[in-house]
Structure formats: C-alpha cells, structure tokens
Design a protein around this nucleic acid. Structure first.
Length: 446
DNA sequence: TCTGGGGTCCTAGGACCC
DNA sequence: TCTGGGGTCCTAGGACCC
C-alpha cells in the first residue's frame, strides 16, 4: 500500500490528503522546555478526575495514551510528567500549521487543532504530484514549526486518515520505531486493506456502535458488506447504516469541506469534588456564562439557543435548553437563562459536571437585537443622543420586547444590570419602570 | 482515585402549519 | 366535521471525533 518509484500517484489517484501532527500538545511543551525531551510527558488534567489529552512516545511505551485517566497513567508510569496545558499556545501553533496546509490548496478542513484534510483536486498543475506535496509539507512542518507529522493520501477521507495513522511512529515494548511518514493507499490496495479492518477502525464507530454490531455478529468491515442496509438501520439508525454499508464497499461520499463555521460554543467543567446544591452550581454558572459570552463576541456571533447540561456521579446526563426569539451574546442574558434552566433540573445525586452551551449561532448584524448589559452607566450625552436616532429607537423597542420576553419566561429577577454584576451579582430590584435596565441597556451595533 | 473539554451529528417525539 | 401527510422547528438524549 505504499508507493514505489515509477508508480507515483496522480491527483486523481490520491485527491485527499490527511495530515496529523504527532503528540501535538506534548510536543509543543517539549519545544518550549527542552529539558523535558526524552522524558515521559503528558498534557492533561492533573486532578483526581483528569485525563490525558496528549502523550509523548516515551510515555506511550508505558501504555499511556490519550483519553486515559491521569491517575491510571501515573500508576503505569511513576516518573510521568503531567502538564496542565496551555491552549493559547497550541492554538498559535495550530494556526501556523493550518496556514502551511493552506499553501497546498484552499480546500482545507481542520479536524481539531492537530489534523486537517486537504482536497488536492483543485490544483491545476500536475507537478509536483501528491507524494512530493506530502513530503514538502512534512519538511515545512519540521523546519518551520519543529513538529513531526504523518501524512496519508488516498481517494477518500476514510483511507487518507487510515493511511496517516499507519504512517505514524510505532510503539512497542522494545521501543519506538519511526513511521514511514507518508503513505499512499492505491485504489487497488484499498479493498484488500478493508478486508482486514475491524469495524471499530471506521470513522463514527465507537464502543457503543461496535458493541451493537458485535451482537449482530458483525466484527469486521468485511462482515458489513453483505448486510442489508434496512436490516442494519433497525439497529443503528438509517444514517449510520448507510454510512457503514458505503464504507464496507470502499466508498466514502464525504467531501473535504473548507470554511466550516461553528454551530455552537460552550464551556463545561468536571468538578474535582462533586457539587451537591443548586446554590453552588449557580455560582459556577457565572464563570461559564463569562467564558461563553467572551467566545461568542470573539467570533462576532449571537446565540438563539441556550442549553445547560448536568452530569451526575453515575455519569448520566440531563439537559435543558431554551430557544429565544432573538440572539444573545452577553454574560447577563446567558446567566439569566442558564440559571432558570438549571433550576428546573432536580438534583437527585451529586453533580460531577456542569456545562453551558450556546447554539443557533448567527452573525452579529446591525439589525440583530441583543442585550448588552455591560456598557456601564456612564453613557455620554452625545452617545445617548445618537442612540435616539430613528433606527436605534426601533432597535431599542425590540430590545425592550426581548427583555420583557426573558422576564416573562424566567421571572422578574432574571436579568441583572452590569452594575449588579460588578457588585457581585446583587439581585435586581424587583421594581417597576426603567431603573433595572435604564442606562445599562443598549441596542446592538456598539 | 477511571474516564476532560472542545465540538459535530443523529434520532425521536411533539407542536404547529399547510 | 373528521382525517391524513409532509415539512419545519424545538427539546432531550446519546454517540462520536480529537
């Protein structure tokens, strides 16, 4: 399934490229602190409920892998170095990584911070071919980012990703063997490789689906090829059934999609010690609302749907959501709606995780009505006058409607002003008139 | 002392409209 | 007055990806 001289593929044979950075978070940490080189290092949660997000190959020799509980990893590797992670730094490397991939083609689809698909079909020129492009990309990632990576090339996303995984360094008890780095799966070899794969190798097949398929006697991809799609659909749903059967026949209809825009943003936290009361969780929600509001504004979007998720100690989850008639992007509104939703969830057991999510995202536009309660009370006269322009009058009217709507649904005290927040969340005065929203309320395009 | 935090997608049921 | 079907939106839950 590798290439040989004289059989270099054309773009038609290998239109999809998948590139995957090796041990990304941990590798960035080693770059910034060379004294860690050669040691077993992981990035992840250090607490009782932490998990490993990224592990160096030295750590992997001890059986440590991402997703593993940090406590277990420490047991497996007593000298393990556990780092909390600096995600701003990883984002920075990730941006540089993406820009290198974008030098190949504009059709790039990132998958997390450390992977990307690229569609090479848009390239007009025949030279260099896919193998040379892949080798050049690896060289640039090594020279300019000082990171290692593996590249897969194939007809489809499915095989490009399988190939990059196969091209990675290999860890065994004896040590770490370097991978081939670049791997092309020729169309003729796809089918035979497919025959050897377990269903769990397929994208979208996790533990739950693998168990379901096993109960049907379906363990290998080749088992899926002969199954009737409608029979399969009764067990895994129509969408999954169609996808699995397509994969089993070597087909993957998924395109490489550039410029995906986020559909939701959120923030959640697993507590080192589970929470017991709504009062504690309401406090946590303040932080969550701040994080989510900041993310919304950074992206220049507003959210129509607000959701709260609680996960209990037995790992079952309960969620509540509310879709508003308008978009919000500010702390007070997120907190107000989130708190009202949280209060509808009965706490029959201790809570290990609380999440706040914002969906139904739309670009923030001048015509979009939002609540902006963080402007502060010192509105200047000139600005106040501008706000009274005809356009703003209609926006303010709609804003008042929005506020009324939140209060109707979530109670009179559901919204606090910026001043209240600064004072630490004093309850809004339960009173008439404009006082609660007067100078701290303004319409969108600030 | 097992299992994070950032997300995406799918499903099923109910409401509502035509 | 009764009945039905399709489309869309919303809510809740779950599985999966890195």
């Amino acid at each position: 399934m590798s290439s040989s001289p004289g059989s270099a593929p054309s773009v038609q044979d290998a239109p999809v490229l998948h590139v995957d950075l090796d041990a990304f978070f941990a590798s960035v940490e080693l770059l910034d602190d060379p004294s860690l080189v050669g040691r077993a290092v992981v990035v992840g949660g250090a607490g009782a409920r932490g998990v490993v997000a990224s592990a160096t190959y030295e750590a992997r020799r001890f059986g440590v892998h991402s997703g593993m509980a940090t406590a277990l990893a420490r047991r497996a590797c007593p000298d393990l170095v556990v780092l909390a992670g600096r995600f701003d730094r990883y984002e920075e490397f990730s941006r540089r990584f993406r820009s290198l991939v974008l030098d190949l083609t504009p059709v790039v689809e990132p998958l997390g911070l450390d992977e990307a698909f690229a569609d090479l079909r848009g390239r007009r020129r025949l030279q260099p071919g896919p193998l040379d492009l892949a080798a050049d990309l690896r060289a640039r990632i090594r020279d300019e980012l000082h990171l290692e990576c593996a590249v897969g090339l194939a007809r489809t996303k499915l095989f490009a990703k399988l190939a990059s995984k196969r091209a990675k360094p290999h860890v065994s008890a004896g040590g770490v063997e370097p991978g081939v780095g670049v791997l092309w799966v020729s169309p003729t070899l796809e089918a035979s490789w497919l025959q050897t794969l377990p269903v769990s190798a397929l994208f979208g097949v996790g533990p739950a689906t693998a168990a379901k398929l096993a109960r049907l006697g379906l363990r290998a991809v080749r088992d899926l090829a002969g199954v009737d799609r409608h029979v399969l659909a009764a067990h895994v749903g129509p969408a999954m059934a169609a996808q699995l059967v397509a994969y089993a026949h070597g087909e993957d209809p998924r395109e490489v999609v550039a410029d995906r825009t986020a559909k939701s943003v959120g923030h959640d936290q697993t507590f080192a010690v589970s929470r017991q009361t709504h009062t504690e969780l309401r406090e946590d929600l303040r932080t969550h609302a701040t994080v989510v509001a900041t993310a919304l504004r950074q992206r220049g979007v507003v959210a129509r749907t607000v959701s709260v998720v609680v996960r209990f100690d037995d790992r079952t989850s309960v969620s509540r959501s509310e879709t508003l008639d308008f978009g919000v992007d500010d702390v007070a509104a997120l907190r107000a709606v989130g708190t009202a939703l949280l209060d509808t969830i009965p706490l029959a057991q201790a809570v290990r995780l609380l999440g706040l999510y914002a969906g139904g995202l739309r670009a923030r536009a001048g015509s979009t009505i939002q609540l902006s309660l963080d402007v502060g009370g010192a509105a200047e006269p000139a600005r106040a006058a501008a706000d009274l322009s005809r356009e703003h009058q209609s926006e303010r009217a709609a804003l008042r409607d929005a506020i009324d709507e939140i209060r109707r649904r979530f109670g009179r005290t559901a919204l606090a002003t910026a001043a209240d927040l600064r004072q630490g969340g004093v309850e809004v005065p339960r009173q008439r008139g404009r006082a609660a929203f007067g100078p701290d309320v303004e319409a969108s395009d600030r």
